[in-house]
Computed example of a mutant assay.
Amino acid sequence: MTQDYSKLPHPERVAEVLQELVGIPSINPGFEDGVGEREVASYVKRFLSRLGLQAVDQPVEADRSNVFGLLEGRDRKSRILLEAHMDTVQIQGMTVPPFAGEIRDGRLYGRGACDTKASLAAMLVAMETLVANELVPSLSVALAAVVDEEIGYKGVSALADFAAGEAARYELAIVGEPTSLNIIAAHKGCVRFHIDVQGTAGHSSNPGLADNAIERAFQVVEVLQKLERETYPALAHPLTGPPTHCISMIRGGAAPNTVPDLCRLTLDRRTVPGEEPLEAYRGIKSKLLEAAAGIPGLRLDVREPFLTDYALDTPADSPCVERLLERIQMQRKGAGILGAPYGSDASKLARAGIPSIVFGPGSIAQAHTEDEWVDLEEVTQAARILVDFLMNVERE
């Protein structure tokens, strides 16, 4: 017999914490005007310490640290992990004040409001609610606020290494991202690399005497399109759909009056559960080199990947996931278990042996937008769901 604890978190407190978080700039230092996550990390550490919880810095690189806090449950050897990233993307082009946390018509606006300070606020308020009401969950609850999700996943990689070395068993990681309060149990991975197409430079007044690398790149695009049509549909996953690729950047040419001798394509290949990113890369490389051997004059170099990320595929019928879905549906009728085309921190935790899902308030359609916002009622619902779940989940 379970109890309903979902009415405990107060909407006013949720809005207050989220407004404070949005008010602290934490642009990833890899972006223009990036200041890093240090001040948000300090806020989280003070918040947890004020609750009387153990809160420690986990250094990731110079001036960038995760924050890890722990609320002991009745079972000190089994834990639920709540994880959310602290960094945001850039603020250029925003049409709302990025750090004001302005509230209008039930929405809170600002950079990171949706992605993903709303999730972090819900997690912090859930922890605060448990402590303030002297509630002791069955399982211990760890909270990790991590750096560098928006660019390199350095924060969650350090967290995964740390968790793998602990004696405690993690029953489930709930990774905060905007999912409209659905559970994302499967999502795609990624491999990104450059394709350099070679030509021969010459004067643009007589292009026939040269070999235009940009025009040669059209031939590469045709090979990639054929590969997509003929091989991807058969690899479709029931929750994520088929793999995809996108030529996300193209660079070529030295001057307006010179036939270009180099054209670089950047390919973003999204993998599905069951695919290994490097295997997907090697498959594309093999097809391109094979095609180039059969096209007179086509010369290319497929560079080594500069980014790889893994897909997520957590069983939807695991007891913890089923219990979380049960508590969500008490708050939000119609919520379910879905797949996603994007990646998250969850796959890195799963690779470390921690069953992981993605869950949080807000819509991915609002992430990184010029007027980023989140519905405050949804953030409150997220906090209530977390409290209710943490008080009702048991060890598998």
Rank of each mutant, 00 (worst) to 15 (best):
E322F: 01
V22P: 00
L209D: 12
Q19P: 05
I328L: 02
D371K: 07
L307W: 06
R76Y: 06
P178D: 12
Q366N: 14
D345V: 00
A160T: 13
G199N: 13
Q331F: 04
T179H: 08
G294R: 12
V221G: 01
T200C: 05
C263P: 00
S49R: 15
E20W: 05
T271G: 09
P11V: 09
Y109P: 01
R64P: 01
P238W: 12
R384P: 02
V60A: 03
L130S: 11
S318T: 13
E149K: 06
V223M: 00
F162P: 10
Q331P: 02
R46Q: 15
T200L: 11
S6P: 01
E322G: 10
A158L: 14
E20D: 15
T258M: 13
N28E: 09
F306E: 02
E276V: 15
L298H: 06
L265C: 09
G112D: 01
A132Y: 13
L70E: 05
L18W: 04
V147Q: 13
I27H: 06
L288H: 00
C190W: 11
A118Y: 02
K348L: 13
L209T: 15
V321K: 00
L8A: 07
A254L: 15
D388F: 01
I337E: 05
F47C: 05
E12G: 13
P355A: 10
V56C: 11
I284E: 00
V259G: 07
R269Q: 07
I328Y: 01
A201R: 05
E228Q: 14
I24K: 04
H203A: 08
S119I: 09
D268S: 06
T244Y: 05
S180A: 13
S78Y: 02
E134Q: 13
V358M: 03
M123W: 04
F389P: 00
K45D: 12
E304A: 12
A41M: 10
V379Y: 00
L108W: 00
L135K: 10
S180T: 07
R384K: 06
E102I: 02
H237D: 10
S6K: 04
D161N: 15
T244N: 02
M391Y: 03
L386A: 06
V259H: 06
V125S: 07
V197L: 03
T179K: 04
G294Q: 13
D211A: 12
V136N: 04
A113R: 03
V131G: 08
L181Y: 03
D268R: 01
A236S: 11
K333W: 12
I183P: 01
R270C: 00
L71M: 05
E39L: 10
M1A: 12
L18S: 07
L298T: 08
E304I: 08
E171M: 11
H10G: 09
N212T: 05
V175Q: 05
D317V: 09
V125G: 09
V22I: 14
R269C: 05
E20Y: 10
R395S: 12
G274A: 06
I151K: 10
V146K: 05
V175R: 06
L338R: 09
D87V: 03
A160W: 02
A217P: 00
A210H: 05
D301P: 02
A168S: 12
G208L: 11
A291R: 00
Q3N: 14
S6G: 15
A160P: 10
V223T: 10
K154L: 11
E150Q: 14
A142G: 15
A234S: 11
I284N: 00
T314W: 07
G283C: 12
S286P: 08
